[in-house]
Simulated assay, not measured.
Amino acid sequence: MYLVLTQNYATYAESELSGPQLEKQKRDEVFLKDNIPTWFAASGYVGLAAISTAAIPLIFPPLKWYLVLCSYVIAPAFAFCNSYGCGLTDWSLASTYGKIGLFIISSLVGSDGGVLAGLAACGVMMSIVSTAADIMQDFKTGYLTLSSAKSMFVSQVVGTAMGCIIAPLTFWMYWTAFKVGAAESPYKAPFAVIFREMAILAVEGFSALPRHCLSLCYGFFAAACVLNLLRDLIPSKVSRFIPIPMAMAVPFYIGAYFAIDMVVGTVILFVWQQMNKKDAEDFAGAVASGLICGDGIWTIPSAILSILRIDPPICMYFIPSGQST
């Protein structure tokens, strides 16, 4: 009798739920069924930190063991921020957080190996932060496709382990076959030069930066904190009109075309929701993915500007102080 009443109540509860609510309940149930224990994740991170703390100083002597340990201590905070920003904008800024580690470590080590130590610390930080964003995207894919979170995690571990073997071998093949980094080589590695210059800048100090550069950084950082506090403290009916600082920062980093894509896409989605809300909810994700992957929005105005031979109205060029063009 109790079993019959329980089954009847479950059937009634499901009937009371609408389609989207029932689908969300099913996704939550499947996703949380095979959760990963916290102790397992923490012990795995501690184990990897111990291995890196012992091994990396042997490969890069200027990067001392305590600096590697400090990188692993502060990396989870950066990983969380990058995962959050990647969820908002679908853009991983792991290299930006790696540059933070580069500047910190290079300035701490100084002129005695600071460049090499900063570059190595940047690589450590980027590998941690980017992996966190990648696995969060995998978890989101697993949630949408009703896949087990544990299976997604195991796949990530297997892929990472394969990369630890395949990536160095691939790099060594290119290193022996081509002049990587040389000006006449097809593999010039321009970012290597950029990161090295940033490490040198960190060793020399902030005096080499352009005038008012730090003041602008302080101002934008304070403005981002204020905007986030306002979004959290004021009512939602007003806070939804306040822009998200993380989403605003991405176009400044990668260029205005990203902001144009998002604005045009938002307008299209708004009009679509007004015309047919059901179809917009069902197909908006697929349409947005296609436009982003194919770069279909910015390509059209970019092609038009190229055909009309319209040049940018502003061109910036930075040279050392005291030097004229």
Rank of each mutant, 00 (worst) to 15 (best):
G114I: 15
A182V: 01
T131V: 07
V203Q: 12
L93C: 06
L269P: 00
G101W: 09
P168G: 05
I56F: 05
A284Y: 09
P190N: 03
W272C: 06
S185F: 00
P320L: 07
G87C: 10
T299P: 03
K150P: 04
I268T: 03
E29F: 09
S239L: 14
A121V: 04
T11C: 15
A303S: 13
A247D: 02
A54N: 10
F252S: 08
C86Y: 03
Q274T: 02
G101I: 04
A208M: 14
S215T: 02
V226I: 10
P57G: 01
I74E: 03
S83L: 09
W272R: 13
V287I: 13
S215E: 04
K33D: 13
Y45M: 12
A256P: 02
G159S: 15
I165Y: 01
M136Q: 06
Y72A: 05
Y317M: 10
W91Y: 08
I56E: 04
P312E: 08
L93P: 07
N35C: 11
M152P: 00
L233W: 10
L146E: 15
P235C: 05
D134S: 15
S147F: 03
V46C: 05
A183E: 06
S43R: 08
V158Q: 13
P312T: 07
W172T: 00
V263F: 11
Y84K: 13
E197H: 09
K140S: 03
M125K: 01
M136L: 12
A303I: 09
F195D: 13
L216M: 08
G255F: 04
R196H: 04
L63P: 02
D279E: 06
Y12F: 01
F252A: 14
E184A: 05
G47I: 06
C81Y: 11
N82T: 13
I304L: 10
L308D: 10
A286E: 14
F153K: 09
D138A: 15
Y143Q: 09
Q21K: 14
E29A: 09
E204Q: 11
V203D: 00
Q25K: 12
G219A: 10
C81N: 08
P312A: 01
M262I: 15
Y66A: 14
L102C: 07
I254V: 15
M173C: 00
I319N: 03
E23I: 15
V109W: 06
G265D: 02
G101M: 09
A208W: 11
Q137L: 07
V124P: 05
A247C: 03
A208H: 11
K24Y: 13
I166A: 00
I242P: 05
W298E: 13
I307T: 10
S289Y: 09
D232I: 14
K140W: 02
M248E: 12
L32W: 11
Q323R: 02
Y72F: 11
T53S: 07
V263L: 11
V154A: 15
G44F: 02
G296T: 01
M246R: 09
D279Y: 07
E14V: 05
D261C: 03
F31E: 15
G113C: 15
R309W: 00
A256I: 15
